[in-house]
Design a protein around this nucleic acid. Structure first.
Lengths: 319, 319
DNA sequence: CTGAAAGCGCTTACAG
DNA sequence: CTGAAAGCGCTTACAG
């Protein structure tokens, strides 16, 4: 029952039906190991992640497993720790026993040169989810972080905010840089000046959002809105605001990024940027499952960013 | 390089070292497919889940992959949809192509008879995470839900609350029943009466917590505390409270269950019950990886529940 | 104790 | 076009 014979046109429909019926009754299941040994494929993909937001990882998983199921693949998960400090040798050691046909990398792994070159050296194909500077030689699947951050900032400005703070994401994530650039671009386009008192460095964690908020709230003046580079940090800002009796959104509007579960569970609910994460997972798996030749070089450059959506909820108030 | 020869004692230490060194230099990696074909094992475990809280799933994953890595196994993930409506045949169809040596089930899959008997029929070993009535014939890994709910209720009572509402979890989850029983036991032990106006049916979702809270808040009298059977529903209660201007914890104390990410991100932060989920994932994978004979029948009955912890944060205030 | 051979269940190149 | 044979890289039972 090879894959070619499967759709063999010269077999009468009835015969095919009877064979399939028999296979079903006997509960025939092709042995993956044997097939793998013969074809030198594993029919396995891996999802690598490190320190990512749970709901984000699960959505990628959801999407990737959908593609896998359609193609007779399975998805193995490989949480990492300390990938930031890994050099290429460490990464090679971590991956050399991964019996997979390809791996899906989520940010910040997808921005990590040591990891990318280790995979290349091991001849393991990969697909990257996250942010792209546009000049990379490998495909990156994701939204246009710059424009998305610009959209959120423009919305704040349109709502009458002029004094807007910003909390940057993890310095090693490409997306941090792009989101900050998008923020600055929108501010500049509206002729608004950045106030460095209101710009803080975070690392995408809830706690770093709290620390950043404490810093910003300790200045002489307070902004009327804060745009945090992701939902977790925005949640940190809301926690500190709650602690200090600063009412959201009456005294302070807050914008987040990612539309994770957090955004819906907070009160007031968070205005944020939604990424089609599940769809990105689907695409990543599809690219890895498709035979390499099927992916012309053109595919790299032609890949359009996924669309993002500005989701407005109660955390932002017009002045 | 069989596993027996590996620790062969009659090989000089130096020789062993040189061989291992050579293997390392040549980057020898045993071929999983070939080994699997020869041993008729797959060295793969699967994690099945349906509609579970992301941070919970990820913690199980974290624990299970730890065990897998130690044993040369890998973990494949298998999100399910509509498992509640599946009969045994549906489940057999869903699992017959799972090329694994065992599966880890999380609640509610672990309470689902159709799924358990499908796995038994397919001769796939499984380990269940979740709640146990004590009378089941298969192992269940988890905390003592009854006692944990009792602990939370007792804490509320000790804090001076007498008017306590309760939001039940999904009716099909065993844990819902046990948590409600624990609540009732603690109330009865303190001579407090249940007020049915303050007892609502939920389904463990954020939205069901909101609906339940609206119902409870629409009664003539309002309780001074609400114990929701999980954190997501507690978050729903907080959202509605925020919406209606009911201040937490000044006007209303709230207790949750699970200590998911949600509990730490809300403001005020949620008092809740922590389960050692990662450790439960470790144990589940260990049980499946260990050879079946190594698990004497006694292991079933002797398995002690994991310890839970009452985590007190700002959402509960003493009267 | 050691080493060569058979076999796991597939796919594929090849002889008929 | 069809069917038997070889081979994928391991493990294990067996002959030497």
């Amino acid at each position: 029952m090879t894959s070619q014979n499967w759709r063999e046109p010269n077999v009468a429909e009835k015969t095919r039906e009877r064979v399939l019926e028999a296979a079903r009754e006997l509960r025939y299941t092709p042995n993956l190991a044997a097939r793998g040994l013969a074809t030198s494929k594993s029919y396995l993909l891996a999802l690598l992640y490190d320190n990512a937001t749970p709901s984000y990882v699960l959505k990628v998983q959801q999407g990737a497993t959908l593609s896998c199921q359609n193609a007779g693949y399975h998805l193995i998960v490989h949480p990492m720790r300390g990938s930031m400090q890994m050099n290429e040798d460490d990464a090679v050691r971590a991956f050399e026993r991964l019996p997979v046909d390809g791996v899906i990398l989520t940010s910040p792994l997808s921005d990590n040169p040591a990891i990318l070159s280790a995979l290349t050296k091991l001849n393991i194909r990969f697909a990257c989810l996250g942010a792209s500077l546009g000049q990379t030689h490998h495909k990156v699947i994701g939204i246009d972080n710059h424009n998305a951050a610009k959209d959120m900032t423009e919305f704040l400005i349109k709502s009458g905010h002029k004094d807007i703070g910003f909390i940057k994401g993890h310095p090693n994530h490409l997306s941090s840089q792009l989101r900050f650039e998008g923020f600055k671009a929108a501010m500049a386009a509206s002729g608004l000046r950045l106030n460095n008192d209101w710009i803080a460095q975070g690392d995408y964690s809830f706690t770093s959002g709290e620390v950043a908020a404490r810093g910003i709230f300790s200045r002489a003046q307070r902004p009327t809105a804060i745009f945090a580079s992701n939902d977790d940090m925005a949640a940190g800002v809301m926690a500190i605001a709650g602690h200090m009796g600063i009412s959201v959104p009456d005294d302070l509007s807050i914008g987040g990024f990612d539309d994770t579960l957090t955004a819906k569970i907070l009160w007031p609910r968070l205005s944020t940027i939604r990424q089609p994460v599940k769809e990105m997972g689907v695409l990543a798996a599809d690219l890895l499952i498709a035979p390499p030749k099927a992916q012309g070089l053109g595919a790299d450059t032609m890949r359009e960013p996924h669309a993002h959506h500005l989701v407005i909820r109660e955390s932002i108030k017009a002045l």
